[in-house]
Design a protein around this nucleic acid. Structure first.
Lengths: 220, 220
DNA sequence: CGCAATATTGAAATAAGTCAAACCGTGTGG
DNA sequence: CCACACGGTTTGACTTATTTCAATATTGCG
C-alpha cells in the first residue's frame, strides 16, 4: 500500500459500525465479512434493508448527512474508509472510477427496489427463496460461492427481520424448502440443491443485478 | 432558456415513459405532474416502489444501463431529459450541482429504505398513513400543499400496489381513517385533518427526508 | 347516455402472527 | 467433567390481519 488513502477498521461480530441518527461523510467499503443495513422503529421493530458482502459500498459518498439506518456486522468484518478528498483525487486520477461508482450505486438501488417487491408482492416462500438466489449470484461474483453453496451467517431471527416475517414462520418455511429438496442449511452453510427449480418457483430473474460481462451468472 | 441543455417531453396520463427492460442513459427530471416507479413480475403482479413529483429525478445519471422498473405517469406530466454530456458541462460550470445531485440521490434512497420498512414492518393503517405524511412534507417543500391538503391523483388500486395490500383492504382502511376523523379523501383531494395525531399513530419521523433548512417541515 | 374504470360492501378462506414451551449445541465456570 | 446458561432452533395450538371472490354502487368521461 502506497500513499495513505484512508483507514482500515475491524469490527467484531454483531456490532454497529455506523449508527442510525449519526452524521457521516466519506465513503466506506466493506472488505471482509457480512453486514446488513438495519432500520429500527421507535417501538423496537427492526427491518433489515439489505445485506452487504465484501466489495460493497456501505454508503454512497455524501457530504455529511444524517444516517437513516445502521450498519451492523453479521460476522467479524473489516471496512475501508475513504475521505471525500481522497475520493476526489482518486476520481480525477482514474476517471473510470466515477463510472464504476455510479454503476455500483445503480445496482445497489436496483437490489433495494427488488427488496420492495419482495416484501410487497411475494409470500414467505418466495421471499426467502429469492434472497437465497440473489446472494448466490452476488457471492459467486466475488468468488465466495462454489457449487451453489456458500457461507450464510444469517440467523433465522435476522432472516425474519430481512423478510418482514416472524422467526417462527421463517423456520417453518425453511423446513418446507428442505422437505422439497431445494436447499440445505446447517451450521451457517447454505447449499442450494436445485437452483434451477428454486429460481423457477420464486420467479427469480437476475437482470436487476446487472451481470457484468455475465461472468458471474453462469450456472454450470 | 439559453443554450440547448436537453429536451422537454410531455406525457399523457397513465403512460409509461421509461420502460422496464429498456436501456437508458442521461438524466431525467420530472417537471410537471405525478409519476411512479413501477415493477412488474412475470406473472403480472405489480409493485409501485416510489412516487415522483415535480423536481424529482427519475433516474440517477448512469451510463447506459438496463432498467429494472418502468416510470409511469399518474397524471399528465412533463419531464426534462439531459444527456450525460450536458450534465458533465453543468457540473463543471456549477460545481455545487454535484453536491446537490448527491444529496438528492441520498434522500431518494432513504425514502426507498423507508418504503421497505413500511412493507416489512407496518400494518395497513400505518402504511397508508405513513405515505400520506411523507407526501405532505414532500409536496409542501415544492409549494404543492397548503393547509395539510394536496392533490392526490393516486387511485385506490394504485395505492394498493404501492402498499402491497389489496384494493379491497385499502378501501376499508381508508374508511377507518375517515371514520376516525384523520383524513378526508374525495375527488383526488387529500386533506389531512389531524396531522399531529396521524403522524403519532403511524410513528412518522420525517428525519429520513432530510428537511433542508427545515423550511418545509413546519407544521404551522 | 352509456360504458369503463373506480369504489364499496359482505361473507368465507388463508397466510402469517402470537404465545409459550421444549430442544439443542456449545462454551464457561465451579 | 458435569451443570448450566445462552443463543438459536423447533414444535404445537390458537388468533388475526389480510386476501379472495363476487356482487353492487358510483363516478367520470367520450
Amino acid at each position: 500500500m502506497g500513499a495513505c488513502v484512508g483507514s482500515h477498521y475491524h469490527v467484531r461480530n454483531k456490532a454497529d459500525f455506523l449508527r442510525q441518527g449519526e452524521r457521516v461523510s466519506g465513503l466506506h467499503i466493506l472488505t471482509k465479512g457480512w453486514a446488513c443495513r438495519l432500520l429500527i422503529l421507535p417501538d423496537g421493530r427492526r427491518q433489515i434493508a439489505g445485506f452487504l458482502i465484501p466489495g460493497d459500498i456501505c454508503m454512497t459518498e455524501v457530504p455529511d448527512v444524517y444516517l437513516d439506518f445502521s450498519l451492523s456486522s453479521l460476522t467479524d468484518s473489516s471496512y475501508l474508509s475513504l475521505t471525500n478528498d481522497t475520493l476526489d483525487r482518486l476520481r480525477t486520477a482514474y476517471p473510470p472510477v466515477r463510472k464504476g461508482l455510479a454503476l455500483h450505486d445503480h445496482v445497489i438501488s436496483a437490489i433495494l427496489r427488488n427488496w420492495v417487491v419482495n416484501l410487497g408482492q411475494r409470500n414467505a416462500f418466495e421471499r426467502i427463496g429469492h434472497l437465497f438466489c440473489e446472494m448466490l449470484l452476488r457471492l459467486r461474483c466475488i468468488g465466495m460461492a462454489e457449487n451453489d453453496t456458500y457461507h450464510f451467517p444469517v440467523t433465522q431471527i435476522e432472516l425474519a427481520e430481512a423478510t418482514g416475517l416472524t422467526p417462527v414462520h421463517v423456520n417453518r418455511t425453511l423446513q418446507d424448502m428442505r422437505a422439497r429438496g431445494l436447499v440445505s442449511l446447517q451450521n451457517r452453510e447454505l447449499k442450494i440443491l436445485d437452483f434451477a427449480r428454486l429460481a423457477n418457483l420464486v420467479m427469480f430473474d437476475p437482470g436487476y443485478l446487472h451481470p457484468v460481462e455475465d461472468g458471474c451468472m453462469r450456472n454450470d
